[in-house]
Design a protein around this nucleic acid. Structure first.
Length: 417
RNA sequence: CGGGGCAUAGUGUAACGGUAACAUUCACGAUUCGGGUUCGUGAGAUUCUGGGUUCAAAUCCCAGUGCCCCGACCA
């Protein structure tokens, strides 16, 4: 894509009403636009990143047998009354609305109820289990206080997967697979080294749930990291009993972290309430054993920015970057610009390239934009680089680049399949 | 839901109670061309909304709304 064609522009200044690093950098770079508190739109660059993240998650969910669907955000109160989650006293984050005929509707903050209800139509035998189903879908939560840029918003896309198993043993088997899939997702997203499997409260469903917490100074949660076992415990359940329970020895380091994923054992709470049962081999009727597994792709995007950015801007890992290469053409020398066009064409064949072409701005501004946007590789072509034999290639996080020939460039940037 | 702060051009800021200024952005013209270059000319504002005090309100007072931060909350 030619940067001169991109409708968004970078900004030097950011509205003072944004304090968090993720919002500041993403707004300045033109990745997102703030509509109101806790409500953001995703612009071309932001959507590219979000799609990359979603695809990583999608691949890993498919790999463990997840089947993708999309459910509606509009919710029928009847189902939620059956599980006692319609009452505002019980769930205080509902957005509710009404049809013209005064029928009440809810905007979904999660999807256990409607999916359990769907599955009733398709699960009737032990032969139908286990199954797992997921979606990327907008959730609405009427948070009293949205904050931290795109980390806690009132509307957000969530990947929510739900598992349906015959019994606890079968459930745990899937749960372990999901745990590994989550670990892979965060590794592939470039924050694996900062992300810990974390024991957290299981709520009313089970003793523990597992969170995936990414260490950043701006996180909302406090966790205690046990480096020896590469594991952490959320402050909310950090007691001597729990430590003994988990038989963890060694030091625990207190740190702030962001919850980028959460997996839950639900048991039969929803299948009981909504009557999702199956028949066993012997003909008995049993409730389906469920689990739920969430990741917010936008929060993950914000976390990557928070965790990896430097004082000049964003540093995207290659796996989630909107483009792999940022090609900058410097100067007004026609020969250089013609050569840059050629390089852009050849690079585009195999790589995702953002080409800062004939924009009438200074070299300094192009560099500043490149640093802000955080594309992993920066390739500079100028009369100087041509004199030195080609294109100057530099990684975003590196101080100095090196001049390579076009041939070398194409090889270096070849996607490692 | 408690506490604190803020609200002026697209953005960032300024303006004793005396009729809105500067920077940036944008348009045009020069200049420059490897780290947000320099200069000129222009465009851009019912000063959040409603009320009150006053000869006079961006400025003081009251209410509302919105935004940010801290805390509580967070399937």
């Amino acid at each position: 894509m030619r940067q001169s064609e991109l409708f968004t522009k970078t900004k030097k200044e950011v509205p003072t009403d944004e304090v968090s690093k993720n919002a500041e950098l993403l707004i300045r770079g033109g990745f997102i636009y703030k509509e109101m508190a806790g409500v953001y739109s995703y612009l071309p660059l932001g959507l590219l990143v979000l799609n990359k993240i979603e695809n990583i998650i999608r691949e890993e969910m498919n790999a463990i047998g997840g089947q993708e669907i999309i459910m509606t955000a509009l919710q029928n109160p009847e189902l939620w009354k059956k599980t006692d989650r319609w009452d505002n006293e019980k769930v205080d984050i509902w957005f509710k609305t009404k049809l013209k005929n005064n029928t009440e509707l809810g905007l979904a903050f999660t999807h256990e109820e409607p999916l359990t209800n769907i599955m009733k139509n398709y699960i009737s035998s032990y032969r139908d289990l286990p199954k797992s189903v997921y979606q990327f879908q907008n959730k609405f939560r009427n948070e009293v206080r949205a904050k931290s840029g795109i980390m806690r918003t009132r509307e957000f896309i969530m990947k929510d997967l739900y598992s349906f198993s015959k019994n606890e043993a079968e459930h745990l088997e899937f749960y372990e697979k999901a745990k590994k899939a989550y670990t892979k997702i965060f590794e592939r997203s470039g924050i694996g080294h900062l992300t810990y499997l974390t024991f957290a409260s299981g709520g009313s469903f089970s003793k523990f749930s597992h969170e995936f917490q990414t260490v950043t100074s701006t996180g909302e949660d406090t966790i205690y990291v046990n480096e020896e076992n590469n594991i952490a415990i959320n402050k909310e359940v950090f007691t001597d009993d729990v430590k003994k329970d988990l038989s963890l020895s060694g030091d625990f380091k207190e740190t702030k972290a962001v919850e980028v994923g959460n997996i839950f054992t639900l048991g039969t709470r929803f299948s009981d309430a909504l009557d999702l049962t199956y028949q066993t081999e012997k003909g008995d009727k049993k409730p389906v054993f469920m689990g739920s597994y969430g990741i917010g792709p936008a929060r993950l995007m914000g976390t990557i920015v928070e965790a990896l950015a430097d004082d000049k801007g964003i540093i995207w890992p290659e796996t989630v970057a909107p483009f792999q290469v940022h090609l900058l053409a410097l100067g007004e020398d026609e020969a250089v610009l013609v050569e840059a066009d050629k390089i852009y064409e050849s690079l585009s064949a195999n790589s995702e390239v953002l080409f800062d072409d004939r924009r009438e701005i200074s070299a300094g501004e192009k560099f500043a934009d490149a640093d802000l946007l955080g594309i992993p590789y920066r390739a500079v072509i100028s009369s100087r680089s041509l004199k030195e034999g080609g294109v100057e290639l530099k990684k975003r996080a590196e101080e100095k680049g090196k001049v390579v020939s076009l041939k070398e460039l194409l090889v270096l940037l070849k996607p490692s399949a």
